[in-house]
């Protein structure tokens, strides 16, 4: 997260530095078009999975254990004889759900904490800022691991853990952004005119802060999906047999030498989703072709 966020900022600054970019830059490259299409397909799979795979992701067939990819089973079968393609398709909902949900949660929590810290007296701001720095000192994944140890594994735990790990970055940007907006002329003017601080907070600061945060969030969804998959891989995600990409992947890790397909396809799905989100997100941000 930290890095992706940094990258967006770097680019946004560069973009700002060169305002003369022509409308040509808005034209999406083939890569962006492909990524957008893939995301559309993915959303369709989230909403109506049966559209893509009529097979039941939970239907086991002991006689078809670890069958290689074929016309019948495009991605092969797993140890219990379940169709891996159906599981990957049906897993999109859980994986993207956690990615989107955790990011939204992190954004809202980060926004509230950041804005409050930015407006609060120095003491409180310092305390919150130091706490955020302490949290940011830890690798995001380790933070998520500690949180899930506290809240317990499962779908909710996964959501909360991934969100908590991403939250400090949002809080920090929200706080800094709040300071920028607060010191802007129009807000100062409003304060001088007697507008209560909470009101300018709602009217000016939150909207002014939200922009950069939303940009971070688009790319954050990708990171959240990867983090969630990592935790599921360690066995801390949704309970079996629910088809979640990280869960399917971890089911395949011990059959790697005999049946590579169980682990490889869900991994490809994660990669494709995150690449697409990254491509589209960067395009939306820079307002131009991806370098």
């Amino acid at each position: 997260m930290t890095l992706l966020q940094w990258r967006t900022r770097g680019e946004s600054q560069r973009g700002r530095g060169r305002p003369g970019r022509g409308p040509r830059g808005w034209l999406p490259t083939p890569g962006v078009i492909a990524a957008s299409l893939f995301l559309v397909v993915l959303m369709a799979a989230v909403l109506v999975p049966s559209l893509f795979s009529p097979l039941d992701p939970l239907r086991a067939d002991a006689s078809a254990s670890l069958d290689a990819p074929s016309a019948e089973h495009w991605f092969g079968t797993d140890r219990a004889g379940r169709d891996v393609y159906a599981r990957v398709v049906h897993g999109a909902r859980a994986s993207l759900g956690v990615g989107l949900g955790a990011t939204a949660l992190a954004l809202v929590a980060g926004l509230i904490i950041g804005v409050v810290a930015g407006l609060a007296p120095k003491m409180i701001d310092a305390a919150v800022s130091r706490s955020i720095e302490v949290l940011m000192a830890f690798p995001e994944f380790l933070l998520a691991l500690v949180v899930i140890a506290v809240v317990g594994p499962g779908e909710t735990g996964l959501l909360v853990a991934v969100a908590s790990a991403a939250m400090p970055a949002y809080a920090r940007v929200a706080r800094n952004q709040t300071l920028v907006v607060r010191n802007a002329g129009y807000v100062r003017a409003a304060t001088v005119l007697g507008v209560p601080p909470w009101r300018s907070a709602l009217r000016h600061i939150v909207p002014g802060t939200l922009g950069p945060l939303l940009v971070m969030a688009i790319l954050g969804v990708g990171t959240a999906i990867v983090s969630a998959a990592g935790l599921s891989f360690l066995g801390l995600g949704p309970a079996p047999p629910s088809p979640e990409w990280g869960v399917i992947l971890s089911e395949g890790r011990n059959t790697l030498s005999t049946a590579w397909w169980v682990a490889v396809f869900p991994g490809l799905a994660i990669m494709a989703a995150v690449v697409s989100i990254g491509t589209v997100g960067r395009h939306l941000k820079t307002g131009g072709a991806v370098a």
């Binding site: 939970l58 239907r59 086991a60 002991a62 219990a80 004889g81 594994p153 047999p241 011990n254």
Partner: peptide, 20 residues
């Protein structure tokens, strides 16, 4: 309890599917 070995997980997947 975690971790559930693969073979037992697969066995459980089948039992669960049959019972449905």
């Amino acid at each position: 309890w975690t971790p559930v070995p693969d073979d037992r997980a697969a066995l459980a997947d089948i039992i669960q599917s049959d019972l449905r």
